[in-house]
Computed example of a mutant assay.
Amino acid sequence: MYEELKKRRLELKKTLEEIAEKTKIKKHCLQLIEEGKFDELPIEVYTRAYIKTYAESIGIDPSIILKDYEEYLKTKKQNVQQIELKPKFESEPEPKPEILKKSSDKKIFSLKKFPAWAMTAGIIFAVIFVIIFLIQFDKKEYEIPPPPSIKQEVISENTKVQEKIDKNEQKQEISVHQQSLKIEAIDKVWMRITIDDKEKKEFLLNPGQKIELQADKSFKLHIGNAGGVKILFNDKDLGKLGETGQVVYLNLPQDKN
């Protein structure tokens, strides 16, 4: 039934920009609601509020649209439970006792048939090997080791020093390109953070909670409550980002907010 939102909006000859201005909801979020792409919207508490506000602004009963959203949440939870209940691997079948018994019997039978002369020869060979080993070991104890090579030690020490210098230079190069992000929640806030356009993280922070993140190039932030968070980018305070309950998008370091 979420298609009814777009249909009703077009009947009223309203644009998404006009609805966004009236409801204070981002145009991008309104478009996602119209298309039923609930998985790209913020957490449940914010999404329900967006749907309710949007529907009421164009004269549609919010319960009709919220019913679709609740069905989506129910299906999503069922899928997660099925994944968690699925075993990671199947246990290997235990060997049958009869097969083990036959294998054991076969080993015992082969030992009984082993010739006595061969066993005796094996013992004698082992004793001779031990004696030779002890003689060689005794000789090594009395051998005078050659004097250490002074040149080799100097080269080895220089190599170690050079390796330390190279590692320090690599660490310095890495630290020059790293971006740091420190976030402190003043109020309850949800946010989604994309690191270097690859890794995505979602957080729901309570007042007083803090997080620290690092990136090689950039951060993209989707903040559900701009007035409830304090952000330091590369140890620089970005100041007030918006009002309580306001949704804000930031690209760092491109944005200077």
Rank of each mutant, 00 (worst) to 15 (best):
E3H: 10
K7M: 07
R9A: 12
E11R: 11
L16D: 00
E17Q: 01
A20F: 05
E21A: 13
K22M: 13
K22T: 13
K24M: 11
K27D: 04
C29G: 08
L30P: 08
Q31D: 12
P42V: 07
Y46L: 10
Y46H: 06
R48N: 03
K52L: 06
S57E: 00
I58D: 12
G59D: 08
D61H: 01
D61K: 00
S63M: 10
S63K: 10
D68P: 01
Y69L: 15
Y72D: 04
L73C: 10
Q81A: 00
Q81Y: 00
K88R: 01
F89Y: 11
E92P: 08
E94V: 11
K96C: 01
K102A: 09
K102V: 01
S104T: 11
S104E: 04
K106S: 11
I108S: 15
K113S: 07
P115W: 13
P115V: 14
A121S: 07
A121K: 04
A121Q: 06
I123F: 12
F125S: 11
A126K: 03
F129T: 08
F129P: 01
I132R: 10
F133P: 02
F133C: 02
F133D: 02
L134I: 05
E143W: 08
P145Q: 14
P147R: 12
Q152L: 15
V154W: 04
N168M: 11
Q172K: 05
K182L: 11
K182H: 15
E184P: 04
K188M: 14
I193K: 00
K200S: 06
K201T: 10
E202K: 03
N206Y: 03
N206A: 04
Q209P: 00
L213Y: 13
K217I: 12
F219G: 13
F219K: 15
K220I: 05
H222I: 09
H222G: 02
A226M: 07
I231S: 05
I231Q: 10
N234R: 04
D235Y: 08
K236N: 13
D237H: 12
L241T: 07
G242P: 07
T244C: 09
G245S: 09
Q246I: 01
L250D: 09
L252E: 00
L252G: 03
Q254F: 01
Q254E: 07
N257K: 15
